[in-house]
Nucleic acid binder design. Structure first.
Lengths: 336, 336
DNA sequence: TTGTAAGCGTTATCAC
DNA sequence: GTGATAACGCTTACAA
């Protein structure tokens, strides 16, 4: 079927090894032989089989990437940034969507290892991801966490300074006049949710404002979760004047709930969240948000992973933290 | 390092073949032997090497996917839908962003073939993608086109009925009172752009309205292109009352231009486009759009590809067309 | 039901 | 500079 090194070798009157050297741009082949081999390659339309070379050289040129969902406007740019850097270094991305499902994530990790990816870039489901990641990390397999970290797992990671960003957002709300603030939180087993909640707590405490469990709504961090939380908030004896959502999906869900109840932002309720969405920012710049440099974080993470894969990383794990950027728009306005 | 079939075989006191049979769930192994092998597998923590099996069986369980940009809100769901279906059939996705760059796309195709993906799902850059796709398709390699087709390439494909959708949108604008309509078009070498423009033409002709080249703005289909087109339109002697953008990115660019000129939608200008963006639809439901079932199309395309890969597809190429859905919101209103 | 032998297409190693 | 040989870890084909 397809031509092999041996076909090329026969045609050029050399051995397979010499062909391999030419294909891999190794030195030690005379210009004349090289030319003859290159001609044979062109004539036979030879393309090296990366599966075979992966088997012998243990270099598959494949990197595994797992995110909860590529179609999430935060993770789309993350995958894109990672792919661009990987491409530049000659690697392809094996992309998996964990759907925030721990067991699915476990199977993906197992499968990627079976495919002999040379490294793994992952936005883990949560702390319990340690169950399938600690083994890998323990035996020195290159892994970099992006966006979320995993409690108890000593591993390279890139993420946002969530505590500071959430604190800043909350301080902004307080300064705008809000006193009753509700937070749509993630499960406590996800680092981003935990850190963002901590930031809110710090800011509320600094302003000596009460912030009890009844102001924290823990749900799934998707639209449905935001929707449920929104409805619950509106049912409170004393509803908040501002809602802070842990990410873009939950903010959308909250907005849906508000609309169903005939409420407008910010006339009847202030709303803000993590994640700026490009389209939204231009078409309808209303939401006050914490903008995360998604693509930049992904690039940094992939560079970190490549370094680890090349053994240039040192025994200590590295953590890089990016600052969030508060973008104040009208949705956080206070109408006392 | 990692255990191999032979390690397991030795430990279980059988041959490598028998282990292979157990791993691949083939019949013809006694329950007792199977149990012994499974125990050995567990003890050694054996995980089959898919690179090796890919070499011998020619089944890599890998599918290549190329899109212009995963972070585009249309392609995100496309990749997600495709990945979900592929996963269900035991395949992983090798994801590439062509960045709408023909040469980059060519290299990706070559590389994916080198990695021995078993099939390719691609949203091609344009008609010139035939340069690197026709060879593949010609020799029976499983390829399915999604979103865009390639002129002169007889190949399975899934896409939208762009002509009908664009015609419907244009008819809607005309009915709303618009007479001067401008279209932000793609290059003519991209099927979607061509078809959408044809739809606009049909509707204008049916209403006996003039529609000359000066009303068609051909640019890159990204934000910058929309921005440039928007500025150009506003500079016309008789600017349009409605702008129809060929996709979401260009619409955003147009909006940016309008805002820079201090114009509001729809007060000063009507604006509509292809692609509904979920977030936008909920947070700021203003844009009149043609909604495309992105994820559904992707699922259908991947199912088609799997069928072709399994040889269950017949010699004829198959084309599946989904209808677009016109969603009328306030942005298309006419303020004569 | 189980095993043997050979080879998938490449590269590491060492010899010439 | 170039080549022979032996893997890499698995599966196909056939034999027992």
């Amino acid at each position: 079927m397809a031509a092999t090194v041996r076909d090329v070798a026969r045609r050029a009157g050399v051995s397979a090894m010499t062909v391999s050297r030419v294909v891999n741009r190794q030195a030690g082949v005379s210009a004349e032989t090289r030319a003859r081999i290159e001609a044979a390659i062109a004539e036979l339309n030879y393309a090296p089989n990366k599966v075979a070379s992966g088997l012998t050289s243990a270099r598959t040129e494949l990197i595994g990437m797992i995110v909860p969902d590529v179609s999430n406007p935060f993770f789309g740019p993350v995958v894109r940034g990672a792919e661009m850097v990987a491409r530049g270094a000659g690697y392809r991305l094996l992309l998996c969507n964990s759907e925030s499902d721990l067991e699915l994530e476990r199977r993906y990790v197992e499968d990627l290892v079976g495919h002999r990816v040379e490294g793994l870039l992952i936005a883990p489901v949560g702390d319990r991801s340690a169950l399938h990641l600690s083994g890998l990390v323990g035996r020195g397999f290159p892994v970099v966490l992006i966006d979320r970290q995993v409690a108890g797992l000593d591993c390279d990671r890139v993420g946002l300074d969530n505590v500071a960003a959430a604190r800043q957002m909350t301080a902004h709300l307080i300064e705008a006049g809000h006193r009753r603030i509700a937070f749509v939180a993630d499960s406590d087993s996800v680092s981003t949710g935990r850190e963002r909640l901590a930031g809110v707590r710090q800011a509320m405490a600094a302003a000596a404002l009460p912030f009890g469990d009844e102001q924290i709504f823990r749900t799934s961090t998707d639209r449905a979760g935001g929707h449920n939380s929104g409805l619950a908030m509106l049912g409170m004896a004393e509803p908040p004047t501002a809602i802070f959502a842990v990410n873009n999906m939950t903010a959308v869900g909250v907005m849906q709930a508000l609309r169903e109840r005939g409420l407008q932002v910010p006339r009847d309720m202030a709303l803000c969240c993590f994640d700026d969405v490009e389209h939204l920012a231009i078409l309808a710049p209303v939401l006050t948000v914490i903008d995360q440099p998604a693509e930049g974080m992904a690039r940094a993470a992939m560079e970190m992973l490549l370094k680890r894969m090349e053994g240039k990383a040192g025994p200590q794990s590295v953590a890089v933290t990016f600052p969030g950027r508060l973008i104040v728009r009208e949705s956080s306005r206070f109408r006392g």
